[in-house]
Design a protein around this nucleic acid. Structure first.
Ligand SMILES: [Mn+2]
Ligand SMILES: [Mn+2]
Ligand SMILES: [Zn+2]
Ligand SMILES: [Zn+2]
Lengths: 145, 145
DNA sequence: TTCGTTCTCTTGAATGATTCAGGTTTATGA
DNA sequence: TCATAAACCTGAATCATTCAAGAGAACGAA
């Protein structure tokens, strides 16, 4: 009864200073179960779990959870924002130029910032984001065959 | 008279299979003189040189010149597309989180792709794009002072 | 020089992701 | 139980970019 169990999704939300609502629990679960989902996909995942939720609420919740560090937002050029539950480890992504598929790539160097700029122009850099562009297995066989 | 002089902007356009128009010469010059300009800035630079040009024509020309490899497009998350004349050398960028300022960073490793993914997930990678995020000199003094 | 083809440019409308606005409901802790 | 701020709702607005389709112009061939 008094034990502090491994934190549930609800407890994580509360721990981040956010209120616990069915929609936000469902949203965090959806993002974590998914794989770099876009906002529409997240909204439909949330609705599958708890019924109607406005797209607006999804945007607001994603903003709040991103600010709280519970989810991470990535935005490859030319595609809408995508969200993932893997946070705090400065990993990178491969993106398919043809179909937009995204996959994780561990950081080749170490912690963030994982790369030193050769000349930082006086900027104080806090993150090095790497996107590898290419073709996913499916798209490259389609093209070459 | 018969000499093949160092190529002019016009000759470069022709060499890329594009027609030579005042607007496109002006556009290429504008992009080269500028420093990671956005579309509006390019349009106004072009207009300063040759008078009225529709924004649509600017978009189309940028598309054509990008496809031809004469200009390069970058699109940091959260800001409109920017274009530059420095092409073919796989360099990277530092972007200010506060004001959006962009500066060049030479590739730390070598040719494109300058980085090997630790696990490419079967993707055939042709480019590694790196964006260093931080604060420019101006924005960081503003915040810390 | 003239022509025809195709590229380029134009105006005007449409898209689509995201954000803004303002009002209502609800979680939370006092 | 209550007050308050957070969360949520509907509806409208923004903004960069793209789509459409007709008019104009570059340029290689005749
Ligand atoms: Mn990831
Ligand atoms: Mn550059
Ligand atoms: Zn693909
Ligand atoms: Zn700045």
């Amino acid at each position: 009864m008094t034990a502090s169990q491994p934190s549930t999704t609800a407890e994580e939300l509360r721990g981040a200073g956010l209120r616990v609502t069915a929609a936000r629990v469902a949203l965090l679960d959806t993002v974590r179960d998914g794989d770099h989902l876009d906002v529409e996909s997240i909204a439909s995942g949330v609705r599958d779990r708890v019924g109607h939720v406005s797209l607006q609420a999804v945007y607001e919740a994603l903003y709040a959870l991103t600010a709280a560090g519970l989810v991470r937002r990535i935005e490859p050029a030319g595609s809408p924002a995508r969200f993932e539950g893997r946070v705090g480890d400065n990993h990178h992504h491969v993106v398919c130029r043809s179909c937009g598929a995204v996959a994780d790539v561990d950081c080749a160097v170490g912690e963030a910032p994982c790369l030193d700029a050769s000349d930082d122009h006086g900027f104080s850099i806090d993150e090095a984001e790497v996107i590898y562009w290419g073709l996913c297995p499916g798209c490259s066989t389609t093209r070459s065959s």
